[in-house]
Amino acid sequence: MIRFENVTHFYSNNQEHKVASLSKINLDIKKGDFIAVIGANGSGKSTLARHINGLLLPTEGDVFVENLNTKELDKIWDIRKKIGMVFQNPDNQLVATTIEDDVAFGLENIGIREEEMKQRVDWALKIVGLSGLRNSEPHLLSGGQKQRVIIAGALAMRTSYLILDEPTSMLDPKGRKEILKIIKKLNKEQNITVVYITQFMSEAAQFKNIIVLDKGKVVLAGSPKEIFSQADFLLSLSLEIPQITRLARELAKNGLNVPSNIINEEEMIKYLCSYI
């Protein structure tokens, strides 16, 4: 479990210019959660993510990862072993000359023996579906494959939490689908807790829960249906609702009896079939 207790974070570029990017956040992320985080640019999403593994420390309050406080310097490596981070640009995270070396990088750092290292790398590459490319050079891969290598690197470390900060924003549609498929599988089959930051409402709609940030505060939390039924509030936060939900609202406004919180295509088609 990850717990934010009254966490406030100030960025400052000089003495006068202080910006609170997180403001009194209280949040529990439980084992096995599958959470999307949405919010306008500057709402504090990335700052929140970087607090989970101690890349940033709270100015006030505390962040606990399974009862370890990220402020305890001697615990930071224990914390980071538990938490895999995936950022926007995979090129910034790939370090080795072959894919298997890249996946093994973290394991070498913590001194895992060769035999076990091989087993873990095999296992991780198999889960993300890249066993066949183990000897390839990272720069020859597509964006989606690169992100999968990074996820494999985290898996090999036996990470229990995956924090992904807009991992698909540089990917083509095929790459986006690949990543979502993999993390759903990891959550379901390996019980890995997923916190997924995204600007794509259609992606957020596929998670179990959504957290909405605004000006460093959690302003809404709930299931996609609950969240996207509050369209006006989301719009006031510079957010949006998925295209399918927008259509549902438009039709409801025009007198059709369509619930305005439809979030997926199958449901929409079912309703429309009774009308046309």
Partner: peptide
């Protein structure tokens, strides 16, 4: 080239 990547929906719009 990909001008709106990672902009929030409203900034994107």
């Amino acid at each position: 080239d990909e001008p709106t990547a990672s902009l929030d929906p409203q900034s994107c719009n």
